[in-house]
């Protein structure tokens, strides 16, 4: 089977154009809102909080905040990207085009992930201005960045197909992703929690993402980096299976 590369390119460019059309909302606002955390927690309050494992508090929270942004942006981007054609009815064109689900997913998820990665790098650059950063394993840092962006864009794509109303579309990022990220060790090391909460926290997948990502910066981790990687890959695999099933059965796409 040969892929319809032109179709992937068409979808990808179409989705990227959507981003550039609204630069304030798509790029500037997430970058500013995340930067506020650096200003408040890094510079203002951070100086009164003791270092964690030899890392200043402002620097400690940077990997977690980038993760927070990656997760919410990937999910909302990818879910809106596919929800809108469904909502407007323009999905007819995707369904009647000579393309398979692989091309559709590569186009939509690729564009959503690209945008998240760009945002993540912008936040990283902004953080540099406010807090002292170091990156011990830059290759792993990029690998975690890309892997997370792709995985959660895929997750967002699934949400976008599942959602049959705007409310559902916004519920998942707001009610699931954000709490999981805040409770997933973005602002603290899970070592500070009481033992019972430490155990419960391990059921939160975001813990592994944040921990692995922070390890690539400072070499410190709440859980072993291998396990972090494995959990991320497992989640990616689950999303791939879900997408495959969706297109196989036509779930919420075809009658």
């Amino acid at each position: 089977m040969t892929l319809n590369l032109r179709a992937i390119r068409a979808i990808y460019l179409f989705e990227m154009a959507r981003t550039w059309r609204t630069p304030l909302q798509s790029i500037l606002s997430p970058v500013i809102s995340t930067s506020l955390y650096f200003v408040v927690f890094g510079s203002a309050i951070g100086s009164r909080i003791t270092e964690i494992d030899g890392v200043s508090y402002g620097a400690f929270i940077v990997p977690g905040l980038i993760m927070l942004l990656l997760l919410t942006q990937s999910v909302s981007n990818a879910s809106f990207g596919i929800y809108f054609p469904k909502f407007l009815g323009t999905i007819y064109e995707l369904l009647s085009a000579p393309i398979s689900f692989i091309e559709i997913v590569l186009g939509y998820v690729g564009a959503a992930a690209t945008k998240s990665i760009i945002l993540g790098l912008l936040i990283l650059a902004t953080a540099w201005l406010f807090v002292p950063l170091r990156i011990e394993h830059p290759v792993w840092m990029l690998a975690f960045l890309v892997l997370t962006a792709v995985t959660f864009s895929l997750f967002g794509f699934i949400i976008g197909i599942w959602a049959d109303g705007i409310e559902k579309l916004q519920t998942v990022p707001l009610l699931i992703i954000t709490p999981l990220t805040f409770l997933g060790g973005t602002f603290y090391s899970i070592g500070v929690l009481p033992p019972i909460w430490q155990t419960l926290t391990l059921f939160n997948p975001v813990v592994y993402l944040v921990s692995g990502f922070r390890w690539s910066f400072y070499g410190i981790a709440d859980v072993d980096v291998g396990i972090s990687l494995a959990v991320t890959l497992l989640f990616l695999a689950l999303c791939l299976v879900a997408v495959w099933w969706i297109f196989k059965t036509g779930y919420r796409l075809k009658n």
Binding site: A7, A10, I11, F14, L94
Partner: peptide, 9 residues
């Protein structure tokens, strides 16, 4: 233009 690309032309 998007439509044409989608059909692989």
């Amino acid at each position: 233009t998007f439509s044409r690309g989608l059909f692989g032309k």
